[in-house]
Every structure is written in structure tokens, then in C-alpha cells.
């Protein structure tokens, strides 16, 4: 028989998991890029990889404290954004898409190659960098929580830090998007020539947006690696597409959309994977093996996202009125 309670409790855990927080933050970065500025950044996985490797390498190879490791990651992503932006932001939006997707792949392959194994750990990746982060934990040893949310002190620390960063950056995004800066950014999304004709340095604004959203992605990459190890295979283009799926699910030009979208995405994913794997165990799906069941969940999530995009194309938090004028 299927243990429904277990399936639902596993799914519920995803609501506050650090992975959900990481995806929410990466999607918030994309909301700045794509939703507000209209920049087609298909390399968010690259920014996340820079955060992950920037943090892990700083701690492991250079023994830097947590704050310095975070700054190294942010610095790396600012440089990455400048390298991507300087040649492409003067061009049409699609060029940025091509360049970012290629650059993110280049980064992943550089991290995978054996040449730098001593520093990057090649395909095995890196681990053992969590000590200094765990040492900052003020929560005493033990297991805390209620219902399905039972975690030890490190897991709670991680969730608190992860979601605090998400909430703070969501507030920051909300603040700047309702400021005159946000108005210029949204104007650029609509028509950059018109904004240029009004005396705004469009190139500089697009660069600021690219850097800011990239830094969000980098912080997301750091939160992402704290409950697991750094593995280069995690930073494939599919990561970027999952983040895009979350963004469209929640609503591209919204603040809450990426956060709630990430929760829905991960709860659904966990629910489908728990349900299918137990259904196969119980013999409900005789034509399937456990391995196939692991893949089916992505198909089901894909269908769920398609249904949302077809029947609610503005996303959950998007403004329906906007769609009336989409060309």
C-alpha cells in the first residue's frame, strides 16, 4: 500500500528546503533580467556555478572566512557579467541569450576539466567546505521542529540563513523596482530606443541589471551547495531552464512569483517523484522500472507547467491586464 503521509510530508518539506530558497533566489535574479529589463539571460546556471565554486574554492584552497568567500563569489559574478555584457548589451536581446548560454557551458566545462583537478575537483567536485559556515551557527546541538519539519541544528541554520537572504533580496528588489530606477529598467524592456531618446544611458542600466541579477544567482549558488556537495554536473543548461520554468510559473515581472513558483515547483517535483516511485513499488505501474520512474517526474512537472502557462500565461502573480497587450 502507498504511504500517503510520507509522500505528503516529503513534499511539504520542500516548502522551506534550502534548495527551494536557492532556486527562488536564482529565479528572482532572472526576474530582474528577463521580467523587468527584458534581458534574455540563459546563463543563470553559470552565475550559480560561480557562486558555488567561488565559495568552495575560497574556503578550501585559500582558507578564507565565510564573509570573504561570499565576496569572492560575488566579485567573480560581477566580472562574469561585465565580460558577458560589454560585447553583447549593445546588440539585440537574442545575442545576449546565445552568449550567456555558451558562457555558462564554458564555465561548467572549465570546472569539469581534469587540468584544474587540484582546485576544482574535476568531475567529482568539491566537499568539506561547510565547517566555517556551521561554526557560525548560534543554535545549540539537537533536533527541533514540528510535524514534517524536523531538522538538526545545521539544517535549521541553513534554512534560516537561506530564507533570510531570499526575503531581504526580495525586499530590495521590491524597493528598487518601484523607484525611478525601476521605471527606467521597465522602460528599457518596452523599447530601449525610446528610453535612450529621453536621455537615459540604456547600456549602463542594462549592465547594472545584468550584474544585479547575476549576483542574486551567485548567492543562490552558495545556498544551493550548503546542503550538498559542489558537483559540476548540477550546472548544466537544464538548471537554467528549471529556473526559467519557476519564473514563468510565478510571473516574470513579479517579486513573489519566483519565490512561490519555486515552492510549487519543488513541492510538485517531490510529490510526483514520491508518488511514482511508490506506485511502481506497489505494482501499480507494471510497465515501469524505478529508474524510469525517476525520469517520469520531470515529464509530469513539464506537463503541469505547460498547463499553467496555457491556462494562466501571466503566471500566478502576473497581472492579467498586461497580457491583453502582448504583441
Amino acid at each position: 500500500m502507498i504511504d500517503w503521509i510520507q509522500i505528503f510530508s516529503n513534499a511539504a518539506q520542500e516548502l522551506i528546503s534550502p534548495t527551494t530558497a536557492a532556486y527562488a533566489l536564482a529565479a528572482l535574479g532572472l526576474a530582474i533580467h528577463f521580467g523587468y529589463t527584458g534581458l534574455l539571460n540563459f546563463g543563470q546556471a553559470g552565475f550559480m556555478a560561480l557562486g558555488a565554486y567561488g565559495y568552495a574554492i575560497s574556503v578550501l584552497s585559500f582558507n578564507l572566512p565565510v564573509w570573504a568567500a561570499v565576496l569572492v563569489g560575488i566579485g567573480a559574478s560581477v566580472v562574469f557579467a561585465l565580460i558577458l555584457g560589454i560585447p553583447t548589451l549593445r546588440l539585440r536581446a537574442d545575442y545576449l541569450a546565445i552568449v550567456t548560454i555558451a558562457a555558462a557551458e564554458i564555465l561548467r566545462l572549465v570546472f569539469t576539466t581534469n587540468t584544474f583537478e587540484a582546485i576544482t575537483g574535476s568531475a567529482q567536485g568539491l566537499n568539506g567546505y561547510k565547517g566555517s559556515f556551521a561554526a557560525l551557527n548560534p543554535i545549540p546541538k539537537g533536533t527541533y521542529g514540528f510535524g514534517p519539519f524536523q531538522y538538526n541544528e545545521y539544517d535549521w541554520w541553513l534554512r534560516i540563513v537561506g530564507w533570510t537572504v531570499v526575503v531581504l533580496l526580495a525586499l530590495l528588489t521590491w524597493l528598487i523596482m518601484r523607484s525611478p530606477w525601476g521605471r527606467v529598467i521597465k522602460g528599457i524592456r518596452e523599447d530601449e530606443d525610446a528610453v535612450r531618446a529621453l536621455g537615459k544611458n540604456v547600456y549602463s542600466y542594462k549592465m547594472q541589471s545584468l550584474i544585479l541579477g547575476g549576483v542574486y544567482g551567485t548567492l543562490a549558488g552558495m545556498i544551493f551547495i550548503l546542503p550538498r556537495a559542489v558537483v559540476p554536473a548540477n550546472y548544466q543548461t537544464s538548471l537554467t531552464f528549471f529556473v526559467y520554468a519557476i519564473l514563468l510559473l510565478g510571473g516574470a515581472a513579479t517579486i513573489l512569483g519566483p519565490i512561490i513558483g519555486s515552492m510549487i515547483f519543488w513541492v510538485l517535483l517531490s510529490f510526483f517523484s514520491g508518488f511514482i516511485s511508490r506506485a511502481v513499488e506497489a505494482g501499480w505501474l507494471p510497465f515501469m522500472t524505478q529508474v524510469q520512474a525517476g525520469q517520469l517526474r520531470f515529464i509530469l512537472v513539464g506537463i503541469a507547467i505547460m498547463l499553467i502557462v496555457i491556462f494562466r500565461p501571466q503566471g500566478i502573480f502576473g497581472n492579467k491586464k498586461e497580457l491583453a497587450f502582448v504583441k
Binding site: S179, P180, V184, G187, R189, E190, V195, K200, F325
Partner: peptide, 29 residues
């Protein structure tokens, strides 16, 4: 015509003003 479609008419107008200090990312906060 380049009206900025998904901005309100008022926002379109405000965008036209010169020398806005809030258009700086750091001051926008």
C-alpha cells in the same frame, strides 16, 4: 510611435524628466 506599452501613461511621462536622483541604483533603495 514608441509609447512604452506596459508602463502606465503617468510612468511614461515621469520617465521623460531629466536629472532624477532616484534613477541611480544606490539612491533608488
Amino acid at each position: 510611435t514608441k509609447a512604452l506599452g506596459l508602463l502606465s501613461v503617468l510612468d511614461n511621462m515621469k520617465l521623460g524628466a531629466k536629472g532624477q536622483s532616484g534613477e541611480n541604483l544606490f539612491r533608488a533603495v
